[in-house]
């Protein structure tokens, strides 16, 4: 039986893992290669590795670090942050990334999704969407590390990304990110029902029950979190044991 995936996210800035609260006030949480290896041993199903400085500072993604992680890791990992071209993706895949995640560049030029899917296959193209709720417009998509409102409806954008050939959606609720109050069940469920590709829920995980809720109530295929794992607040194995007790299929 296909299992629900637990995915620690390594936000990278200047070669170190950091996690901000709503993308501000970054704290240092460790060496990414050491963390990657630790998570693989503890039973993480996948890793996401986001160079959060790349877009703002127009810096190339850290190829050397990707290579070091790939050398160490025997589970799949996704790399994102500042990816804007077919050449960027090729360089990351050649150095051992299993998938790439694109965000701002896809919103600026949605045809990029079609081009990447045609060149590399949908299976390695993740479209990341950062969504924020406001009462007037509902859930809208933001770019540039959450600083710019595109004015696009989150569900519509995710559906378009899927139609253009994305293999997976990484949906982050910026309204929940860093709060530890739980995932955004409404938008996650709406996106999951709107597309036929897997959806990774991100933003807001604070407890084991939050993961149960996002799998049972919002049909997420995977749950992603950073700080609760980096600071050892929840162990991956104990999280998965909790999920199994709740009747959710997991790999233990």
């Amino acid at each position: 039986m296909l299992t629900k995936r637990i995915i620690p996210c390594l936000d990278i800035k200047d070669g170190r893992t950091v996690k901000g609260v709503q993308f501000e006030g970054l704290r240092d949480a460790g060496d990414p290669v050491a963390l990657a290896a630790r998570y693989a041993r503890e039973g993480a199903d996948e890793l996401v590795f986001l160079d959060i400085t790349a877009t703002n500072q127009k810096r190339a993604t850290l190829i050397a670090l990707v290579r070091d992680v790939a050398r160490e890791l025997d589970i799949p990992f996704t790399v994102g942050g500042g990816i804007g071209s077919v050449a960027d993706v090729e360089a990351l895949l050649l150095n051992g990334a299993d998938k790439v995640s694109i965000n701002s560049a896809a919103l600026a030029r949605p045809e990029l999704i079609d081009e990447l899917a045609a060149r590399f296959g949908s299976q390695c193209i993740v479209v990341a969407a950062d969504a924020r709720f406001n009462a007037a417009d509902g859930w809208q998509v933001y770019t540039r590390a959450g600083t710019h409102n595109t004015g696009r409806d989150a569900v519509q954008w995710c559906r378009e990304a899927a139609d253009r050939g994305a293999g997976e959606i990484l949906l982050t609720s910026m309204s929940n990110d860093g709060t530890k109050d739980g995932f955004a069940l409404d938008i996650t469920g709406a996106v999951s029902r709107a597309v036929t590709i897997p959806v990774i829920a991100s933003g807001g995980a604070g407890s084991k029950q939050d993961f149960t809720n996002v799998f049972q109530q919002a049909q997420a295929d995977a749950g992603l979190a950073a700080s609760i794992f980096h600071f050892g607040e929840i162990g991956i194995r104990e999280l998965k044991e909790h999920l199994r007790q709740d009747g959710i299929p997991v790999r233990l």
């Binding site: 039986m1 296909l2 293999g167 590709i197 295929d221």
Partner: peptide, 14 residues
């Protein structure tokens, strides 16, 4: 394309 069975089949299966 079946409800609840997303394509690609992505993740850990036994």
């Amino acid at each position: 394309a079946l409800p609840e069975y997303k394509v690609p089949h992505m993740g850990w299966n036994n």
